[in-house]
Computed example of a mutant assay.
Amino acid sequence: MISRITGFLAAIAMAATLAVSPAHAQDQNPAASAPAIDAAAPAADTAAPAPAAAASAPVDNPYSLANIIAHGNVVDQVVLVILALMSMGSWYILVVRVWDTAKLQSEAKDVRASFFKKASLADGIKSLKEESAFRYIATTAVEASEHHEGALTENIDHSSWVTMNVDRAVADVNTKISAGLGFLATVGSTAPFVGLFGTVWGILNALTAIGVAGQASIDKVAGPVGAALIMTAIGLVVAVPAVMGYNWLLNRNKGVMSQVRAFAGDLHGVLMGNRSVAKR
């Protein structure tokens, strides 16, 4: 009987121990888990800016011109340099020739208003600017009229001799204002083909790389081919202003040179008239 009571009490004590142990463990777990949560919180806070940093990072665009300049081969970069030189030369010629023709138009307006109203050709020549094309033509005509001597030049009549010298002076002026038009024509006709050569070379390299890798996917083809096509676009951007500038300057020069030739014809008439008066 005593042994049974003792066993019963031992069972109760064991049950009480088992009941208290989980409660005690629960009391300890919040204390242990709290620092874990606190420790994890800073980690979450530090990890939160990661998506923003990833979103703000620059993305390498395989289709851009900068990518060709930075990662292109020697042929691509040489083609870009040639096109850049063509473009700069075209715009330089356009600006300079427009300035020259505008100056000639202004001088022609002044000549029509005052030159032939002077008392003499000498006074008219002095009224012109030193570097004026009209002064160059007038000086050449007067010198030819006053210096018609020599065993060979005497075989040419005076009027033809003056006409020949005036025509040469007019041709010199025309050559000066037409300088560079040949370059514009060359750029306009060749720049698209230079750009096309860069495109063909880039596509060839892209296809070669795909063949070596043995894989053909849109992401491997689109980037190199798209970058190569930029060369054709650049060639057209260089060629179109050159062609339009050439045609515009050609028509502009015709208008200016018609005024120059009119002045030369009037000057020739004045010189021949003076000679006829002097003979009388």
Rank of each mutant, 00 (worst) to 15 (best):
residue 1 M to K: 00
residue 1 M to R: 01
residue 2 I to F: 00
residue 2 I to M: 00
residue 2 I to Q: 00
residue 3 S to I: 00
residue 4 R to G: 01
residue 5 I to S: 00
residue 10 A to H: 00
residue 17 T to G: 09
residue 22 P to V: 01
residue 22 P to G: 01
residue 24 H to P: 01
residue 24 H to I: 07
residue 29 N to H: 01
residue 32 A to D: 09
residue 34 A to V: 12
residue 35 P to S: 07
residue 42 P to A: 05
residue 46 T to H: 14
residue 46 T to Q: 14
residue 50 A to E: 14
residue 51 P to E: 14
residue 52 A to G: 10
residue 54 A to L: 15
residue 55 A to D: 11
residue 55 A to L: 13
residue 57 A to V: 15
residue 58 P to E: 14
residue 61 N to L: 11
residue 64 S to I: 13
residue 68 I to D: 06
residue 68 I to G: 15
residue 73 N to P: 15
residue 80 L to A: 14
residue 82 I to H: 04
residue 84 A to Q: 02
residue 89 G to V: 09
residue 90 S to P: 06
residue 97 R to N: 15
residue 97 R to L: 06
residue 102 A to S: 14
residue 112 R to Y: 00
residue 112 R to W: 02
residue 114 S to P: 07
residue 117 K to N: 12
residue 118 K to L: 05
residue 119 A to M: 12
residue 123 D to N: 14
residue 124 G to M: 10
residue 126 K to P: 06
residue 126 K to F: 04
residue 129 K to M: 06
residue 137 I to K: 14
residue 143 E to F: 07
residue 145 S to M: 11
residue 162 V to M: 13
residue 163 T to L: 14
residue 164 M to K: 14
residue 166 V to C: 13
residue 169 A to T: 03
residue 170 V to Q: 05
residue 174 N to P: 02
residue 176 K to G: 11
residue 180 G to C: 03
residue 181 L to W: 02
residue 185 A to D: 06
residue 187 V to F: 04
residue 194 V to Y: 04
residue 200 V to G: 03
residue 204 L to W: 04
residue 207 L to I: 07
residue 209 A to G: 01
residue 221 V to E: 01
residue 221 V to I: 11
residue 222 A to D: 00
residue 223 G to T: 01
residue 224 P to S: 07
residue 225 V to P: 05
residue 225 V to G: 02
residue 230 I to G: 07
residue 233 A to G: 09
residue 236 L to Y: 06
residue 240 V to S: 00
residue 240 V to D: 01
residue 241 P to S: 01
residue 243 V to R: 07
residue 247 N to R: 08
residue 248 W to M: 10
residue 249 L to A: 05
residue 253 N to Y: 04
residue 253 N to D: 00
residue 253 N to H: 06
residue 255 G to Y: 05
residue 256 V to P: 10
residue 262 A to V: 06
residue 263 F to Y: 04
residue 265 G to W: 01
residue 266 D to E: 09
residue 267 L to G: 10
residue 271 L to W: 12
residue 272 M to D: 09
residue 272 M to S: 09
residue 272 M to V: 08
